[in-house]
Every structure is written in C-alpha cells, then in structure tokens.
C-alpha cells in the first residue's frame, strides 16, 4: 500500500470535535480569567493598607517621641508614660489592621 493511499484511508478516521467543545473551552478560560484579577486586586489593596496603616503608626510614635523629648529633655525610652503610650498606639493600629485584613478576606470569600 502506498503512503498516499494509506493517508487517504486514515483521513476517514479523523475525528471532528463537537461545536459545544469550543464553547466549553472558552467558557472555562473566561471564568478562570474573571477570578484572577479579583485576587490580584485584593492582594494589592491589602498591601497598600498594610503600608498606610503602619506608616501612620510610626509617624504617630515618632511625633510622640519628639513631644516627650521636647517636654522633658530626657531619653523618652526612660519614661514609663511614653512606653505605655507607644504600646497603646501600636496595639490600636495593629487591631485596626487585623480587622481590615479580616474584612478583605471575608469579601474575597463572598
């Protein structure tokens, strides 16, 4: 049997994909794609939150340090009031950040 004859015969066995297969493929790709930007967006938003919240926190602590130093002219770390104020500020900002992360997580899950 010649190659051409064999090829002609094999052509008879070539399958034709059903029309709905293409729709299924494109639907899956579009569905998966719709999910990806959402995830990226929420990740980016939580990163921005992280930097802005803790940025403000450090600015507040720094201004507290400057205030204590200008009032007492001593090392602020030696003052109990300063240390407790710093703990209070850091704690409040951390709780706020934690709540933001938790709310973001709930939103993405929904």
């Amino acid at each position: 049997m010649e190659d051409k004859e064999l090829k002609d015969k094999l052509l008879l066995s070539k399958l034709k994909a059903e029309d709905k297969l293409k729709d299924r493929i494109l639907h899956q790709i579009n569905a998966e794609q719709a999910l990806i930007p959402k995830k990226r967006k929420s990740k980016r938003a939580s990163k921005e939150n992280y930097f802005s919240i803790f940025g403000i926190m450090y600015a507040v602590i720094l201004s507290l340090g400057v205030y204590f130093y200008s009032q007492t002219e001593k090392n602020p770390l030696e003052s109990n009031t300063f240390v407790f104020s710093v703990i209070f500020v850091a704690g409040s900002f951390s709780i706020y950040w934690f709540l933001m992360v938790y709310m973001n997580y709930k939103k993405v899950k929904q």
């Binding site: 070539k14 034709k16 994909a17 297969l21 293409k22 494109l26 790709i29 579009n30 794609q33």
Partner: peptide
C-alpha cells in the same frame, strides 16, 4: 485578548480530539 484564542481552538480542536481519542 482571550477572544483570539477562539481562532486557535477552531484550528486545532479536531486534531487534538483525534490524538486524545
């Protein structure tokens, strides 16, 4: 542009089906 992918699907789906089958 994911819609361009439809052209590739059209072009290769029959042969892909044949190989998988």
């Amino acid at each position: 542009d994911s819609s361009s992918f439809a052209i590739l699907v059209d072009q290769y789906q029959d042969m892909a089906m044949t190989i998988a089958y």
